[in-house]
Amino acid sequence: MRVEIWSDVACPWCYIGKARFEQGLSAFAHKDDVEVVFRSFELDPTLPKGAVSDVIPMLAKKYGMSLEQAKAAEERVASNAHASGLEYIFGAHDVGNTFDMHRLIHFANARGKQKELVAALFHNHFADERSLFDDERLIELAVQVGLDADEARAVLADETAYAAEVRADEQEAQMLGANGVPFFVLDRKFGVSGGQPAEVFTQALQEAWAAQVPALKVVGEAAPDGAVCGPDGCEIP
């Protein structure tokens, strides 16, 4: 079974939803047969590269809140993260264009390190006070998960590298009706929107698995002429 997760590194509910999905997956009987692939979705692709702002003022401006209301909203997100077993530093992360991160995630996928890099990016963004919007920091994280520093630097330097893959993911999200993230697609048959509780993901996985090989419906099992033979002999009509 394949699970595709559309997400953005800058999205706190993607960070939380990823953790909850993994908790739900751990309770799934066939978890070892599940392939997880991360897909790209930019929360704000209009942000110019290099324009970075603090999260609290950004929330206040974007949603028309006071700074106090924005802080309260951030505190609620932090509380949800902590309840999901995640580290989350209140108000520490900044906001900017994530396109290069998505390109690097696709590069990591080509090298078999996508899962590790996504985890490192999320943890750094929400649980570390160092900004992700710095190429050298991205290269450091790439090396930490086993990627080659020169290759990662070359990807970041070439704005066309893996750009088509990012755009293809975003177009596909639109076709699937994903207007927000996280968005989980199970075997292209079931969709789960948002950072749902772990048990919701477990149930969705079970339903998707059952849909692969539907239960056989036996017709006429109780009919009088439906005699059968078994290990203990044959029915006598």
Rank of each mutant, 00 (worst) to 15 (best):
R2K: 14
E4D: 14
E4L: 04
I5P: 03
Y15K: 09
K18H: 14
F21D: 13
Q23H: 02
Q23M: 04
Q23L: 08
F28V: 13
A29S: 15
V36R: 05
F38L: 07
R39C: 02
R39N: 06
R39H: 02
S40V: 03
F41P: 02
L43N: 01
D44K: 09
D44Q: 13
S53E: 14
V55N: 11
I56N: 11
Y63N: 15
Y63S: 12
L67R: 14
L67N: 08
L67W: 03
A72V: 03
A78T: 11
S79D: 12
H82T: 14
A83L: 09
G85P: 09
G85D: 06
Y88N: 02
I89V: 13
F90H: 14
A92Y: 03
N97F: 01
H102D: 07
R103K: 11
L104M: 14
H106I: 06
R111G: 01
Q114I: 12
V118C: 02
A120Q: 02
H123C: 01
H125Y: 12
F126E: 13
E129P: 02
S131F: 04
F133N: 07
D134H: 06
I139H: 00
E140F: 01
A142H: 08
A142Q: 01
Q144L: 09
D148R: 04
D148Y: 04
A149H: 10
R153D: 09
A154I: 05
V155C: 13
D158L: 08
T160D: 14
T160S: 15
T160I: 00
Y162A: 09
E165A: 15
V166I: 12
D169S: 06
E170Y: 05
N179S: 15
G180M: 08
G180Q: 14
F183E: 12
F184G: 10
F184D: 03
L186P: 00
R188L: 01
F190Y: 15
Q196E: 11
P197N: 07
A198D: 13
T202L: 02
A204G: 04
A204R: 04
E207R: 09
W209T: 00
V213P: 00
V213K: 15
P214T: 00
L216N: 05
V218N: 01
P224H: 03
D225P: 01
G226L: 07
G226F: 07
G230R: 14
I236D: 13
